[in-house]
Design a protein around this nucleic acid. Sequence first.
DNA 1: TAAAAATAGTTGCATTTGCAACTGACATGA
DNA 2: TCATGTCAGTTGCAAATGCAACTATTTTTA
Lengths: 215, 215
Amino acid sequence: MLDTRIFDNITDGEIDKMKNCFKAVNRKYIEGETINNIENGSLGIVVSGVVEIIRFDFDGNRTILERINENGIFGRLFFSQIDEGDVEIICLTDCEIMFIDYDHLTKQCHNACSHHSTLIRNMLSIVSEKSIKLSNRVEILSQRTLRKKLITYFNMISKETGKKNIVVPFSLSNLSDYLCVDRSAMLREMKKMREEGLIDSHAKKVTILYDQTMF
Amino acid sequence: MLDTRIFDNITDGEIDKMKNCFKAVNRKYIEGETINNIENGSLGIVVSGVVEIIRFDFDGNRTILERINENGIFGRLFFSQIDEGDVEIICLTDCEIMFIDYDHLTKQCHNACSHHSTLIRNMLSIVSEKSIKLSNRVEILSQRTLRKKLITYFNMISKETGKKNIVVPFSLSNLSDYLCVDRSAMLREMKKMREEGLIDSHAKKVTILYDQTMF
DNA sequence: TAAAAATAGTTGCATTTGCAACTGACATGA
DNA sequence: TCATGTCAGTTGCAAATGCAACTATTTTTA
């Protein structure tokens, strides 16, 4: 519970004091559960587990806006200024989430928590990482064709692991929700890529055969 | 020069000390100039002016990955893990950019700058804002159709200003690079929307006539 | 272990979008 | 003031993608 990045370099005793200071609340969720009632100024930190931010729009399209792993953050602030359909936060696994009050976190602390500045430093690191992930997401979605979305996505996974042999961490059905394309169109494109010798693939296992320096 | 958000609540005397501490360098650029040679660990802060992060891919497509206004930040960290074409940083207006060393900013300061923690707090605010902007960008690009991309974009601008009468801050040609769609297809769609009475528009001036609660 | 649900895969057809190649309006600078 | 360039707007045609409706395979659950 204490082993979350936001409390790096802060002692256990201090942590308790601080959690009290900015009204931190830990809650547990089970796999498949939806996280509701997030207040506007509230920030969720994934202590353990994986959550997804999903949008269902009026045409019945499902979009995976974000997948958030351990130490990731989410909050009203970060999604949908616009009431574009429903946004749901769903636990992919059993999860523990810490909710904190964002204003208390960022403002000067009257109780003079001595480690408050360490906490903010940790928070900066977490938010920076989120920015990088979102930039990568923009990189993928900004690709003009389905094929280039796939290639950009495969390249990212491959870069992370250093292997040309990748396992997509989504079901292919969910991958299409992540790339914001039609599932059958995506599978058709993967088939074409297989036929052209660009990749090898069976279900979620994809081997990159194309020259990655070209993309 | 000192009137930038990263130095909020820090006195002028302190600022000089700190700038030295994390190797800050200010540089000026003229309209149209390209910002080159950004080192990997370096972070650019837009002190004044507007810059755009542009990607040119191998098919000749131009994509506006981000438009960054005053107090916004950019850096290698934030774009293209992948060598997908060329990424350029272009000054839309005369600009002043402060480059700082990211590691020095985030790590504990040996010189004991007393306001270092204020600086990190300010940085957190700037990075958080960037995250929110990127989330909005994902919101737009995740839309499945050209029309919905336009509507989501129009709604965002409209929400910012509180008016149904908006002026797009891009040339329509650049707007298509921002929405990652073909220019003529975009203009065709806008024409259709005009014919269907959803919007009124002349060049960059667009009036929203559709019911915004529906989208 | 049988039934149900989720996932993977395929294909024909309609629609959307991109591409190319124009026109006309306006601005800028030599 | 002529020329050059950028921007807005249009359209035919081709290509890419979405939609619908299937089958096959694997996984989950009762």
